[in-house]
Design a protein around this nucleic acid. Structure first.
Lengths: 220, 220
DNA sequence: GTCTATACTATGATAGAC
DNA sequence: GTCTATCATAGTATAGAC
């Protein structure tokens, strides 16, 4: 049976994973221009429907272009996703490193800075967080490699701060690795429930996540 | 350009999101038979490649059937996913309710039971957790409705235990809602990193998650 | 850089024999 | 319940005019 002509059913669309409208890329990471326009449209669509749920025709329609026009800017649909995942992980990694540098040498200040920055990013750029994290698996290894390397480094950053805090006797926990995973998980899920127009500001959210983190690490 | 005949590149496959092999459905939820065989094959493929990344032909090939044979058991590919997400959420909801009943009236025992059971499920049936949670958005609302209702109820279960613990003065936290989200997030991410053949047993994992949860709730 | 037109494949689903 | 064969459409990508 055809996709659109199914007898009586109204052919309702799939639920959007991320219903919000305009998708924003962090400033600076991609210069203004047609490439950026394409990336932002793709960001919104991939976040809503998933990479495989969006066709080149869908993306072109959103941009009011013919499908073929996209190929003047990207060699394939996969390259669009690859750039989005890379940009997302770059923005995160740079923000985390900067936050860490600002925090000084105290592990408590360091972990707070990391978690606050991470929560802020995920709440500010929810579509980018979703696409960079959940659609990465759709890429061939060669196109995902650079992103995977950055992800590894960001995870290492978090684990190192925890291990140092434990070594210095400031933290206590049963398993640094499981605790690190829990802290990261908390941030990763933000885009799925946080609503900027709700009661909670991003700053309050970041503070609560920092507090939860300190508790997980036994800083009482 | 064709998907498979790209000039010189070796047409490497996408990275699998969940590389592991056999996918298991919890016992009892689906009777043995061809339907169950199809669901288990689909579970593995959808977990690896995503719903839209798997064609009916892919699924049929895995089962050594012709594509048309699948339609004797399910009216569409979407119905296969719908059953998987429903089964996954049913298993979770029933397990959580049972754990809660076993735990008695103490909020501390209750939250430990919930978190332990949740971690155990996510570590035992990782593909089901991934598909039920990450692919639900690919379904039309009508096919997802029953699953969404169950998810809502499971989330409510967790929040109610937290609110009751707060009311009884056993817990303390800045935001019950954000804390509930953090606890749920910790469980949801398990399939992405936990490896049964590693050093950590599922029971140890469950214990660590229970301990992290108590800390987040200020039970010291 | 965008358009029109199109090549070629993959896709979800159905018909009808056995 | 599975097969072979097929339909109708959607998919990625390219060619060549402007």
């Amino acid at each position: 049976m055809n996709k659109r002509s199914s007898r009586g059913s109204p052919a309702s669309p799939p639920q959007a994973r991320f219903p919000g409208q305009q998708a924003c890329l962090p400033p600076g990471v991609v210069p203004e221009g047609p490439r950026r326009r394409i990336l932002e449209a793709a960001l919104q669509l991939f976040a809503s429907q998933g990479f495989h749920g969006v066709s080149v025709r869908d993306l072109a329609r959103e941009l009011r272009l013919q499908p073929s026009a996209l190929y003047a800017h990207f060699p394939s649909k996969e390259h669009v996703l690859a750039e989005l995942t890379l940009v997302g992980h770059q923005a995160q990694h740079e923000a985390l490193r900067a936050a860490l540098l600002d925090a000084g040498a105290d592990p408590v200040a360091q972990i707070q800075a990391l978690v606050r920055q991470n929560a802020t990013l995920h709440a500010t750029y929810p579509q980018l967080a979703i696409v960079a994290n959940e659609e990465l698996h759709a890429l061939k290894l060669e196109l995902a490699a650079a992103t995977l390397e950055l992800r590894k480094q960001s995870a290492a950053l978090l684990l190192e701060v925890i291990l140092r805090g434990l070594a210095l006797g400031r933290f206590s926990c049963q398993s640094p690795r499981v605790t690190a995973a829990a802290i990261a998980a908390m941030g990763l899920r933000i885009p799925y429930w946080y609503q900027p127009e709700g009661e909670l500001t991003i700053d309050e959210l970041a503070s609560i996540h920092a507090e939860l983190t300190l508790r997980m690490l036994g800083v009482c």
